[in-house]
Design a protein around this nucleic acid. Structure first.
Length: 468
DNA sequence: TTTTGAGTTGTTCGA
DNA sequence: GTCGAACAACTCAAA
C-alpha cells in the first residue's frame, strides 16, 4: 500500500484541490498534514483574528476529513524536519502541496525539496504566474494587458477536481492546534469550505443574483454588493477555479448587457488577485518597498498621533472612521473603503503607505502579502500599475457618493446616529444647536477633522512633485 | 527600432 | 448647475 502526504498550507478545502487530488491519484492512503512553523509564530501573534480564522478553518477541515474516514495531523516544527520525520513514521513516499508564490514560501519549499520528494501543484491561482507573459517572455506590469492575456489563456472549461468521497489515513499522533480563544470575527466570517460555497451561491444564484448588479453595487458601502469572499480565497476554502468557472458559466447565461457587465467586472476582480500574485512572484523586491524607486525620495511626515487616530477611527472624517472601525471589529473592509482610507493615510496624513500596509496586515482576515502590498502601492501611486499621484480621494465626496444616506457611517459610528443625512459626512458643520439636537458635541463625542483636506491635498501634490 | 495608443476605481477649477 | 480641461508627464505593450 502506497502512502502520500498532503501538506496543507493555504488550501483548506477538499474540492478542486490539486494537491489532494494528485496525492490521491498517486497513493492508496493520504496523510493530511498541517505544520505549525515556528517562523510564523510572530506573524500569528501580530494578526490574532486571521490566526483564529485559520485555526477555525483547520478544525472545520478536520471535521470534513473525519466524515470521510480520515483526519488532520498537526505537527509543530520546521517543515524540512517535520516532513522527513512524518515520511518515516507513515511510510509515505511522496509529498504533494499547492504552490505558493511569496518569497518565504518559495524558500521554505526549496528547503523541503532538498530533503524530501515534494511535488508542487497549481490551484492558488487559475493561471501560474509563469504562464501569463508578454510576447517577449517578460512579465506584465500593467493590469489591462495582463487581464487580456489571462482571459485569452482561459480554456472554455477549466478542469475540476471533485472532493474525494472517502479517504484512508494512517493513524499518527498529532500535536494540538493553538487554542482558538475568543474569535469575535466568527460572527461575520465563519470559517470553512461549506460556508465559502454557501456565500458564493448567494452571490451568483437565482434569477437576479448580486453579481448581476456588481458593476454598480460593488462601490456602495451601504449595500452588500460584493461577494465578501476574500477571507475564504485567502486560505483556499474556496478555489479560484471554482469562482472563475462560476463566472464563465454566468457569462453564458447573463440575461442582458448590464448583468454581463456585472459578471465581467467580478471576473476582473478575480484577475486582479492573480495579477498581484504574479507581480509578487516576478518582482519580489516590490513586496518590501516602492516598486518605483523614484518615490523613495518622498518625505513622509509619519506623525504618530495622526497614525493612531487613523487606526482607531478617530480622524473626524466619518467615512474613514466607519471603515477603520469596521476593520477593527470584523477583520474585513469593503474594497471601496480600503481605497478611501488608504488614500487618506497617504495623501491626507502623509504617512508612509507601509505603515498602513502593516496595520492592514495585522487586522485583515484576508491579509495576503501580494494583494495587500499591491493595493497599498496602487493607492500610494508607487506601484506597478498605480493611480497617478495627483488622484487624491476627497473623503467627503466619496462618502456622499458611496454612502449617500449615511447608513454605513451610522452603523459603525453610533455617536453620529442622530446626525441628519444631509450633514452626516461633514459633522463639523453642525451648529451648536444642531449638535444639541443630534446629542453629540464635536470635539468631545466625535473629533473635529484632524487635517484640512484641501490643504493636505496641496501638500501631497507638492511632496510628490518634489521627487521629480 | 520607432511609433502609437492607452492606462481600475478622482477632484477641482473656471467658463 | 454643467461641462471640459487640468492635474503631469511617463511608461508600458504591441504593432
Amino acid at each position: 500500500m502506497k502512502t502520500a502526504i498532503w501538506w496543507i498550507r493555504r488550501d483548506l478545502r477538499l474540492t478542486d484541490n490539486q494537491a489532494l487530488y494528485s496525492a490521491n491519484a498517486f497513493a492508496d492512503s493520504i496523510l493530511p498534514v498541517f505544520i505549525l512553523d515556528p517562523r510564523l509564530k510572530s506573524s500569528f501573534e501580530a494578526a490574532p483574528k486571521r490566526a483564529a480564522f485559520l485555526v477555525a478553518g483547520l478544525r472545520n477541515l478536520d471535521a470534513m476529513l473525519k466524515k470521510r474516514g480520515s483526519s488532520l495531523v498537526v505537527r509543530a516544527g520546521l517543515p524540512e524536519e517535520v516532513l522527513p520525520q512524518l515520511m518515516l513514521e507513515s511510510g509515505a513516499e511522496a509529498i504533494f502541496a499547492e504552490e505558493d508564490f511569496t518569497p518565504f514560501a518559495r524558500r521554505r519549499d526549496a528547503a523541503v525539496s532538498a530533503r524530501a520528494p515534494l511535488t508542487l501543484t497549481g490551484g492558488l491561482t487559475v493561471h501560474h504566474p509563469q504562464t501569463i507573459l508578454k510576447k517577449d517572455g517578460t512579465p506584465y506590469t500593467v493590469f489591462t494587458p495582463f487581464s487580456k492575456r489571462w482571459r485569452a489563456n482561459l480554456p472554455a472549461r477549466l478542469p475540476r477536481n471533485p472532493a474525494p468521497e472517502t479517504l484512508r489515513t494512517p493513524t499518527l499522533p498529532s500535536d494540538p492546534l493553538p487554542p482558538s480563544s475568543e474569535n469575535p470575527s466568527a460572527d461575520f466570517f465563519p470559517a470553512g469550505e461549506a460556508e465559502a460555497r454557501r456565500r458564493l451561491r448567494a452571490f451568483i444564484s437565482g434569477n437576479s443574483p448580486p453579481v448581476f448588479r456588481y458593476h454598480t453595487d460593488r462601490d456602495r458601502l451601504d449595500i452588500a454588493g460584493t461577494s465578501a469572499l476574500s477571507p475564504y480565497f485567502r486560505f483556499g476554502m474556496l478555489s479560484a477555479i471554482e469562482a472563475v468557472s462560476a463566472a464563465q458559466a454566468l457569462l453564458a447565461v447573463a440575461p442582458d448587457a448590464a448583468a454581463e457587465k456585472g459578471v465581467s467586472t467580478w471576473l476582473n476582480e478575480l484577475i486582479w488577485r492573480e495579477f498581484y500574485h504574479a507581480v509578487g512572484f516576478h518582482f519580489p523586491h516590490a513586496l518590501s518597498g516602492n516598486f518605483r524607486q523614484q518615490y523613495d525620495a518622498v518625505q513622509w511626515e509619519n506623525d504618530l498621533i495622526k497614525f493612531e487616530a487613523w487606526k482607531q477611527g478617530q480622524t473626524g472624517y466619518p467615512v474613514v472612521d466607519a471603515a477603520m472601525r469596521q476593520l477593527k471589529a470584523t477583520g474585513w473592509m469593503h474594497n471601496r473603503a480600503r481605497m478611501i482610507v488608504a488614500s487618506f493615510l497617504v495623501k491626507d496624513l502623509h504617512i508612509d503607505w507601509r505603515w498602513g500596509e502593516d496595520w492592514f496586515w495585522q487586522c485583515l482576515l484576508d491579509g495576503d502579502r501580494a494583494a495587500n502590498n499591491g493595493g497599498w502601492q496602487w493607492a500610494a501611486g508607487t506601484g506597478t500599475d498605480a493611480a497617478p499621484y495627483f488622484r487624491v480621494f476627497n473623503p467627503v465626496t466619496q462618502g456622499k457618493k458611496f454612502d449617500p444616506h449615511g447608513q454605513f457611517v451610522r452603523q459603525w459610528l453610533p455617536e453620529l446616529a442622530h446626525v441628519p443625512e444631509k450633514i452626516i459626512h461633514t459633522p463639523w458643520k453642525l451648529s451648536p444647536n444642531e449638535q444639541k439636537r443630534a446629542g453629540l458635541f464635536i470635539g468631545t463625542d466625535y473629533p473635529s477633522p484632524i487635517v484640512d483636506h484641501a490643504i493636505a491635498r496641496q501638500r501631497t501634490l507638492a511632496m510628490f512633485r518634489a521627487t521629480r
